[in-house]
Amino acid sequence: SEYETMLTEIMSMGYERERVVAALRASYNNPHRAVEYLLTGIPG
């Protein structure tokens, strides 16, 4: 799925699956924002 592709691409940058899933959830599946959250911390 498109979601799995995003997940895999972000994980390939060296992040753990659960952190990527949390970041995508926080960003409403916006991959650019999710990466930003992984770099700066997930808000909330």
Rank of each mutant, 00 (worst) to 15 (best):
S1W: 13
S1P: 12
S1Y: 12
S1D: 13
S1G: 10
S1N: 12
S1V: 12
S1K: 12
S1F: 12
S1M: 13
S1I: 13
E2C: 13
E2A: 13
E2T: 11
E2N: 11
E2F: 11
E2I: 11
E2H: 12
E2D: 14
E2L: 12
E2Q: 11
E2W: 14
E2M: 11
E2R: 11
E2Y: 12
Y3T: 04
Y3M: 05
Y3E: 04
Y3K: 03
Y3N: 04
Y3F: 10
Y3G: 02
Y3W: 11
Y3A: 03
E4M: 11
E4W: 11
E4L: 12
E4P: 03
E4F: 10
E4I: 11
E4K: 08
E4Q: 10
E4H: 09
T5K: 15
T5W: 11
T5V: 12
T5L: 14
T5R: 15
T5C: 08
T5E: 12
T5D: 11
M6L: 10
M6P: 01
M6R: 04
M6E: 02
M6Y: 08
M6F: 08
M6K: 03
M6Q: 04
M6S: 04
L7S: 01
L7M: 06
L7F: 04
L7I: 15
L7H: 01
L7V: 15
L7D: 00
L7Q: 01
L7R: 01
T8I: 14
T8F: 14
T8Q: 15
T8A: 15
T8V: 12
T8P: 02
T8G: 09
T8D: 10
T8Y: 14
E9M: 15
E9F: 15
E9N: 12
E9H: 13
E9S: 12
E9R: 13
E9D: 10
E9V: 13
I10R: 00
I10Y: 04
I10Q: 00
I10H: 01
I10W: 04
I10L: 14
M11A: 04
M11I: 09
M11V: 07
M11Y: 03
M11D: 00
M11Q: 04
M11S: 04
M11L: 06
M11F: 04
S12W: 06
S12T: 07
S12E: 09
S12V: 06
S12C: 07
S12Q: 11
S12K: 13
S12M: 12
S12P: 01
S12Y: 06
S12F: 06
S12N: 13
S12R: 12
M13K: 06
M13S: 03
M13E: 02
M13W: 06
M13N: 03
M13G: 03
M13L: 13
M13Y: 07
G14N: 02
G14P: 01
G14F: 05
G14E: 02
G14Y: 05
G14Q: 02
G14H: 02
G14A: 02
G14I: 04
Y15Q: 01
Y15A: 01
Y15M: 02
Y15L: 02
Y15P: 01
Y15E: 01
Y15K: 01
Y15I: 03
Y15V: 02
Y15C: 01
E16S: 14
E16W: 06
E16F: 06
E16H: 06
E16G: 07
E16I: 07
E16Q: 08
E16M: 06
E16R: 05
E16P: 14
R17Q: 06
R17D: 02
R17M: 08
R17A: 04
R17K: 08
R17W: 07
R17E: 05
R17P: 03
R17L: 09
E18M: 08
E18V: 07
E18K: 07
E18T: 08
E18I: 07
E18R: 06
E18W: 14
R19D: 14
R19V: 12
R19M: 14
R19Q: 15
R19H: 11
R19A: 15
R19T: 10
V20K: 00
V20C: 04
V20E: 00
V20R: 00
V20L: 02
V20Y: 04
V20F: 04
V20P: 00
V20N: 00
V21E: 12
V21D: 05
V21F: 04
V21H: 05
V21C: 06
V21K: 08
V21A: 08
V21Y: 04
A22S: 07
A22H: 07
A22E: 13
A22L: 09
A22W: 07
A22I: 09
A22Q: 11
A22F: 05
A22N: 07
A23C: 05
A23M: 03
A23T: 02
A23F: 04
A23R: 01
A23W: 05
A23N: 00
A23V: 03
A23Q: 01
A23L: 03
A23I: 03
L24S: 00
L24R: 00
L24I: 04
L24Y: 02
L24C: 06
L24H: 00
L24D: 00
L24G: 00
R25P: 00
R25D: 07
R25N: 09
R25V: 08
R25A: 14
R25K: 14
R25T: 08
R25Y: 08
R25E: 10
R25I: 10
R25M: 10
R25F: 08
A26K: 07
A26L: 11
A26H: 09
A26V: 09
A26N: 06
A26E: 07
A26G: 04
A26R: 07
A26P: 00
S27P: 00
S27T: 10
S27F: 08
S27C: 10
S27Y: 06
S27G: 07
S27H: 06
S27Q: 03
S27R: 02
S27D: 01
S27L: 04
Y28C: 15
Y28Q: 15
Y28V: 07
Y28P: 03
Y28R: 14
Y28G: 15
Y28E: 15
Y28S: 14
Y28T: 06
Y28F: 14
N29Y: 11
N29I: 03
N29P: 04
N29L: 08
N29G: 14
N29M: 10
N29V: 04
N29T: 03
N29K: 04
N29Q: 06
N30Y: 03
N30D: 15
N30E: 08
N30L: 04
N30V: 06
P31W: 13
P31C: 11
P31A: 10
P31G: 05
P31S: 06
P31V: 12
P31N: 03
P31D: 02
P31H: 08
P31K: 14
P31I: 13
P31T: 05
H32L: 15
H32P: 06
H32K: 14
H32V: 15
H32F: 13
H32N: 10
H32T: 14
H32I: 15
H32C: 13
H32Q: 15
R33W: 11
R33F: 08
R33Y: 08
R33E: 08
R33D: 08
R33M: 15
R33S: 07
R33K: 15
R33L: 15
A34D: 01
A34T: 04
A34H: 01
A34L: 04
A34R: 01
A34Y: 02
A34W: 03
A34I: 04
A34V: 03
A34F: 04
V35G: 02
V35F: 07
V35R: 07
V35W: 06
V35M: 13
V35E: 03
V35H: 05
V35C: 08
V35D: 01
V35K: 09
V35L: 15
V35I: 15
V35Q: 05
E36G: 05
E36I: 11
E36T: 07
E36P: 01
E36Y: 14
E36F: 13
E36L: 13
E36D: 07
E36H: 13
E36A: 09
Y37R: 04
Y37I: 11
Y37Q: 04
Y37G: 02
Y37V: 05
Y37W: 10
Y37M: 13
L38H: 01
L38F: 03
L38V: 02
L38S: 00
L38E: 00
L38W: 03
L38D: 00
L38Y: 02
L38R: 00
L39I: 12
L39R: 14
L39N: 10
L39A: 09
L39V: 10
L39D: 06
T40H: 15
T40C: 14
T40K: 12
T40Y: 15
T40D: 09
T40M: 14
T40S: 13
T40W: 14
T40G: 11
T40L: 13
G41D: 08
G41W: 12
G41F: 12
G41I: 09
G41K: 09
G41C: 08
G41Y: 11
G41M: 11
G41V: 10
I42R: 08
I42L: 12
I42W: 11
I42D: 09
I42S: 09
I42H: 09
I42Y: 10
I42P: 08
I42T: 09
I42G: 10
I42F: 13
P43G: 09
P43V: 10
P43F: 11
P43C: 12
P43D: 10
P43L: 12
P43Q: 09
P43H: 09
P43E: 09
P43A: 10
G44P: 14
G44L: 13
G44T: 13
G44V: 13
G44F: 12
G44Y: 10
G44W: 12
G44N: 13
